[in-house]
Amino acid sequence: MPSAGDPSQEGVVEGGLALLQGLELGEQPTVDWDWISRNFGDEILPALIGHVYLSFISVAIALAIALPVGIFVSRYRKAYPPVTFVTGLLFAIPSLAFFALLVTIPGVGVGPFPVIVALVAYSLLVLIRNVVAGIDSVPAETIDAARGMGLTKRQILFGVEIPLALPVIVAGIRIATVTIIGIATIGAYIAAGGLGVLIFQGISQDFPTKIIVGAALATLLAILADVTLLRFQRLFSPWTRRAGRA
C-alpha cells in the first residue's frame, strides 16, 4: 500500500485532475489506450459483432422485400409513386422517434426486434428506387433483341434485365448499408446492442475513450462497407470498365 505522500500516487492524482480540467476547458481529451487493450475482447469486439449482425440482417430482409416490390412496380407504373411516397415518409421519421413508437406497440418491447424493423423500413426507399432505376436503365433495344431471340418474359427478366440492372441495385445496397450502419448505433438506446452501447456508456459514464472507440468503429465500419460494396458494384458492370479504358 503506498502512503499518502507517495510521489507516484501524487502524479496519478495530478494527471487525473489535469484530465478533468481539460474536459472542463473543452480541450481534446486523451484516449485511454490501456482501457482499449484491456477491454477489447469482452466489450469492444462483441459490440462490433452485434453491430455487423444488426446491419446485415436488416439489409438482407430489406432486400428480400425490395427486389420483388421493385420488379412489380417497374411493371405496374401506377403503383410506383404511392410506393415511393410511403417509403419516403418512413425514411423521414427520425430513428429515435421510430424506435420509441415501435416500442409502445403491445408485445414488442425493447431489444433488437424493433430496431431491425425500423432499419428495414429505412432501407426500402433507396432499395426499391434503385431496383426500378436499374431495370429502367436496360436499353429497349437489348430487350427487343432478347425477345427476338425467342426468350420468354421470365427469361428476359432473370437473364437480361436483372443482370444488367445489378450495378444500380448494388449502388442502392451500398447507400442503404452505410445509412443503416449509422442508424444502428442509436438502437443501443433501446437495448439492441451494437457499437452504440459504447457511445451511450461513454456519455453516461463521462468516459470519452468509450465514446471515441464506439464512434470511430461505427465510422470505419460504414466506410469499409462503402468501399467493399463499391468494388462489387464495379465487378458487376465490366462493360463500364472497358468503356472507361477506350
Binding site: G26, P29, G182, T185, I199, A218
Partner: peptide, 21 residues
C-alpha cells in the same frame, strides 16, 4: 463529402461531447 456522410450522426454528436462539452 462521401466520407463525411458515412460518419453516423450519433457519432458526430458524441464526438462533440468530449471536445466542446
Amino acid at each position: 463529402g462521401n466520407i463525411g456522410r458515412s460518419v453516423p450522426s450519433l457519432a458526430i454528436l458524441a464526438f462533440a461531447l468530449p471536445i466542446f462539452g
